[in-house]
């Protein structure tokens, strides 16, 4: 039985997409089957994997709004990559209004995604940096939520809003939703501020914080040029190692829980 992890944060540019790409790829390298669902209308994940969002036949948008389109039919696999993808389309921005009047709209994604838990070890949902119906759907469908926190003070406000939504979702829709962990990203070794924010995160979230820290590397920014995860184009880089360590940490947690 697989696990659905929503990668969410109410702020853009915190490393959600980078985490989905590289953590997914690292878990694949460790023999796990991984699916990544791009739930962001900006389609950054889809683009980063070399897929043109305007040319995809079926996207997550159709899966969400059309009851006759199942998730499996939207899954893509690029020959060069080792994980599966459900791409996004800019039309996804309209899903908000399209789902608005529908009964059980919060569970639209859950209904389509739950059957796939048998086929994959890990399903990651790359969430948009909002707290609208798309994120509510992601949290309703997920077993846990992974929160990337950029080591800058402003990101902490995003976490506060996200936690408020998580508590509401638990109360109303998904009582089993857990926090997979808090991931410190874009840690800049040159600044004292990164250290201060990192210490504060550690103090506040305690054992929810992953011991792996993702530092700021230019290799990550090169991802969309290469259209593949970091362990494909810079396998020996520090960044690739960091995501491998994160994957190991997640697998170790699973083993301990089991």
């Amino acid at each position: 039985m697989g696990k659905i992890i929503a990668v969410a944060q109410h702020k853009g540019g915190t490393g959600k997409t980078t985490t989905c790409i590289n953590l997914g790829a690292s878990l694949c390298d460790m023999g796990k089957t991984v699916l990544v669902v791009d739930l962001d209308p900006q389609a950054s994940f889809t683009v980063s994997m070399g897929i043109n969002p305007l040319q995809v036949e079926k996207s997550i948008h159709q899966v969400l709004v059309d009851p006759n389109v199942d998730m499996k039919s939207a899954i893509l696999r690029r020959p060069t990559l080792n994980f599966f993808i459900v791409p996004a389309h800019v039309d996804l921005a309209m899903a908000e209004s399209e789902l608005a009047g529908r009964i059980g709209r919060e569970k639209a994604l859950h209904k389509k995604l739950a059957p796939l838990k048998e086929d994959f070890d890990y399903i990651f949902i790359d969430c948009p940096p909002t707290l609208g119906i798309l994120v509510v759907n992601a949290l309703a469908a997920a077993d846990s939520v992974l929160i990337p926190i950029q080591c800058e003070p402003l990101t902490l406000y995003g976490v506060k809003h996200l936690l408020q939504v998580i508590n509401l979702i638990r109360e109303e829709v998904n009582p089993a939703l857990k926090i997979e962990g808090v991931l410190r990203t874009m840690y800049d070794r040159r600044t004292k501020l990164s250290e201060e924010v990192s210490d504060s995160i550690q103090q506040t979230f305690g054992n929810l914080v992953f011991s792996t820290i993702i530092y700021r590397h230019v290799k990550f920014a090169e991802g969309p040029i290469h259209e593949m995860p970091i362990n494909f184009y810079a396998s020996r880089s520090v960044g690739a190692d960091e995501y491998r360590n994160l994957a190991k940490e997640i697998l170790t947690h699973e083993t301990q829980k089991a």
Binding site: L156, Y157, V159, K160, L163, Q164, N167, S200, Q203, T204, F205, L208
Partner: peptide, 9 residues
Amino acid sequence: VLKDIRGLL
């Protein structure tokens, strides 16, 4: 904001 987060957690 950290106090708020602690409360929510």
